[in-house]
């Protein structure tokens, strides 16, 4: 196989434009999905059965169905509903493929993130919580001072791999006209037929983004560990 340099020169700027969109979508996914997922995890551990059940139902629904279906319901499905098209604020949002993709990514990662933090919150030794209660901590202080920091430290390595998943899931945006990396790659594949070269280049972009992401989390983890030292 000879490397087609002309093809690479043509593809690189397009894929780089796509990479910006991928990064944008992934940043929204992590930035919004992380706090929402944390909230959902707390909801699922709430003493109120109804609330916990609702949270479990949400997580089960989004983890049990493919994101592609979720995305098509949001983009093609909701566009059929008259109320959505006639309400300017709603239509402003759902008209835009990028917004729909961002919403799908957030809804999806929230479910998975809640699972990660639920496990981490439950893994906190009962003794630590009892100790905090014994010194007279209020529930809110207990949450912000003890439970969340401990859960965060436990969950961070697992969450890093969820962040990578978010980066990969943004590729589905290409199926609703968003030209992120995979969308550009697909367009290039159908135009130039240089399948392997395009795949290699697109993969390279993803790997660089993933590595940057992992690096960021490693830094965060080290900071956390430092904060934990007495």
């Amino acid at each position: 196989m000879t490397l087609d340099l002309e093809l690479i020169a043509m593809a690189l700027p397009l894929l780089a434009t796509g990479a910006l969109v991928t990064i944008k979508l992934a940043a929204v996914g992590v930035g919004v999905g992380l706090p929402l997922g944390l909230g959902l995890a707390l909801l699922r551990l709430a003493p109120n059965r109804l609330l916990a059940g609702l949270g479990d139902g949400y997580a089960g629904l989004f983890r049990g169905t493919p994101m592609l279906v979720q995305l098509f319901i949001l983009y093609y499905g909701l566009a059929e509903v008259p109320v959505i098209r006639q309400t300017p604020a709603l239509w402003w949002f759902f008209r835009d493929a990028l917004f729909c993709a961002g919403l799908a990514v957030v809804l999806n990662t929230t479910a998975y993130t809640s699972e990660i933090f639920r496990t981490a919150l439950r893994a906190i030794p009962q003794g630590q919580i009892e100790a905090a209660l014994a010194v007279g901590m209020r529930p809110w202080t207990l949450l912000t001072r003890i439970r969340l920091p401990l859960a965060f430290r436990n969950a961070l390595p697992v969450y890093a791999s969820e962040a990578i998943t978010v980066v990969k899931e943004t590729s589905l945006a290409s199926t609703i006209t968003v030209l992120e990396i995979t969308g550009q790659a697909k367009r290039l594949m159908s135009q130039t037929f240089g399948i392997l070269e395009i795949f290699a280049l697109a993969s390279l972009f993803y790997l660089v983004i993933n590595l940057a992401c992992l690096g960021a989390f490693a830094v965060l983890e080290r900071r956390q560990a430092r904060g934990m030292r007495p």
Partner: peptide
């Protein structure tokens, strides 16, 4: 350019005003 995989999707988006 908004590109679609299928004519029906293109028409759906036209009708939706996208």
């Amino acid at each position: 350019l908004n590109t679609y995989e299928a004519t029906t999707q293109q028409l759906a988006d036209l009708a939706a005003g996208r």
